[in-house]
Every structure is written in structure tokens, then in C-alpha cells.
Simulated scan of single mutants.
Amino acid sequence: MSTAGTPSAPLLALKIDVDTWRGTKEGVPALQQALQRHQAGATFLFSLGPDHTGRAIRRVFRPGFLSKVSRTSVVEHYGIRTLLYGTLLPGPDIGRREAALMRQVRDAGFEVGIHTWDHIRWQDHVAGQDAAWTEREMRLAAQRFTEIFGTPPRTHGAAGWQMNESAYAMEKSLGFVYASDGRGTHPFQPVDAGGAPLGVPQLPTTLPTLDELIGADGLTPDNVHEHLLALTAHPPAQGHVYTLHAELEGMKLLPTFERLLSGWRAQGYQLVSTAKLFDSLDIKDLPQHHVAMGTIAGRSGSLALQGVMAASA
């Protein structure tokens, strides 16, 4: 498929996190059509197991959660029914119900990868879990991906940007080529506490997300694109990664996203999958960084961040 622009044009990779059943069946088709209208590539990362969104109610005790909810209407974007899955309603198995739709996205020329098995379970628990728990969750997702697509997964983008050291190691064991699991400023090779390479190269999300911005500093769905376009006015040497959500940009915020697509095209970017951005890099020269847990403005709790550069051997 066409990704628009010239070979020398800067790259902006679009990473689409698909968290819920509703986001899969409603948001994904809408995003696919919008991307095709704008001749843009993207990577769709699917939640492949049960939708237990309702269990996120536990986050009410997390610092910053209530302020985030007050800025972005969770009910409006996710719907009442989705917010009951895993509590008052059984959680639908997304991968079993929507396998054909997922294959159709792949067949349309978009890269597909793993977001998670159980989004809420991973996001709320992985940071404190051991290697056995982590391996089970990742293998469930990898096995389901292979069942759906007939090939093993090549990439992973962690739910809620939540990881632990075992998860990085498992990405290499499962044969992933690269991943986009955290937040940062440029591609890097993660290392462990001792400075040894850990897992696969990382393409961190480099730009803030709409739900982090809307409702703060006078930003609304009608003008937030102007703020993001100001951040991308001067392209970095190794490109940008923008994370969007099927439940947001694929639904109520689709007009905002289309303004972003038009604006990025006007700035001269090629809008591509994370795979295309990865393929543009010289992997041998990637800087090595530790990964740390920290906070991001507009988002509750801590998440995986690109940390300090590792000391040279």
C-alpha cells in the first residue's frame, strides 16, 4: 500500500493500540478506512484474549486516575457495556470473535502485532509479577496470534506501557524482531541492570497521546491537533512514534485524528508502520539504554520510560 512521500521524507510511525472488543469491531474498521483515505501506513496491535475492561475500576485508587477520568469521558469513549465486562458481564474473547476482521486488516497491507492477551490483567499486574506469570501471559497471546494469522508475531506493544524485566527477555525468546513497549525520545536497545543487552530493540512512543492532552491547558478535540503538530514541526533524525487507540481515534476522536493525518502529510512526513521505521534504522548503531519506571504528564500511575544511556563497555 502507498505510504506517501519521498524516500528522504521523515518518518512518523502510527502505532494503534486496540484494547477492547468494541474498539476492535468498531474502531479498527473506521481507522483502516481513514488511513486508506490518507494513504497512510500503520501497525495495529491487538488484544487477543478476554475483554475485562470493567476490572479497571480498581484504578480509582491510583494517583491521578480520577483527574484523568474527569478530563476524558471514559463512558463516552468506551460505552457502559464495555465498562461492565469482567464484572457484571462476562468478558468476550476478542480473538475468537474477531479473527476474520483482524486478518482483513493484515490483508489490507497493515502490519499486525500483539498488544496483550488480557489488557487489564497485564496493565494492572505485570510490573509486580514474576517470570512464570509473565511467560504465561505472553505465550497465550503469541499462540492466539499464530492461530489467527498463520504466522508467528514479529512485534509487541505493551498494554499501558507496562513491562517487567522478564517481559523484555521473553520478547527475544518468542522471536519478536522489535517492540514498542514504553515512552522515550528515540530508538534504542534496552539493557539490564548490569548493562547486558535485554530483549529486542525498542521504538518508544515519542509523542503525547490525545487522552493525555485533552482537557489540559485549554486543549480540546477541536484544537489538540495544533499542539501535536507544533511538536512535530521539526522532524527528529530517527522519526516519531505516535500511539493512538481504536477506542478514541477510531471512534469519537476520528475527526481529530484525520486533522492530524492531514497536518503530518503537510509537514512532509511519510506515515508508516513501526516496522517501516524499524527497517530504516541501522540496528548495529542503536544506543543502549536502561529502562526505568516513571510518570508522564496527563497519565495516571507509572510506566516504562527510556532511561539513562548505558556506560560504554
Rank of each mutant, 00 (worst) to 15 (best):
P187V: 08
F188T: 04
F188S: 06
F188Y: 15
Q189G: 00
P190W: 08
V191S: 08
D192P: 03
A193Y: 05
A193I: 07
A193R: 15
G195S: 06
G195C: 05
L198W: 03
G199D: 04
G199W: 00
V200E: 06
V200Y: 04
V200C: 05
P201R: 06
Q202D: 08
Q202K: 03
L207N: 12
P208I: 01
L210D: 13
L210P: 01
D211G: 02
D217C: 00
G218Y: 07
G218W: 05
L219G: 04
T220S: 12
P221G: 10
P221C: 11
H225Y: 08
E226W: 00
A230H: 13
A230I: 04
L231A: 11
T232D: 02
T232H: 03
P236H: 05
A237N: 11
A237T: 14
G239L: 05
L244I: 15
H245Q: 08
A246R: 01
A246N: 12
A246M: 01
G250T: 06
K252D: 13
K252G: 00
L254R: 12
L254M: 10
P255Y: 03
P255N: 06
P255A: 06
T256Q: 07
R259T: 10
R265P: 06
A266P: 02
A266Y: 01
A266Q: 15
Q267M: 08
G268P: 09
S273C: 06
K276A: 15
K276H: 13
L277E: 12
D279R: 08
D279S: 11
S280K: 11
S280V: 07
L281I: 09
L281G: 09
D282T: 15
I283H: 12
K284Y: 01
P287D: 12
P287H: 09
H289Q: 12
H290P: 00
H290W: 00
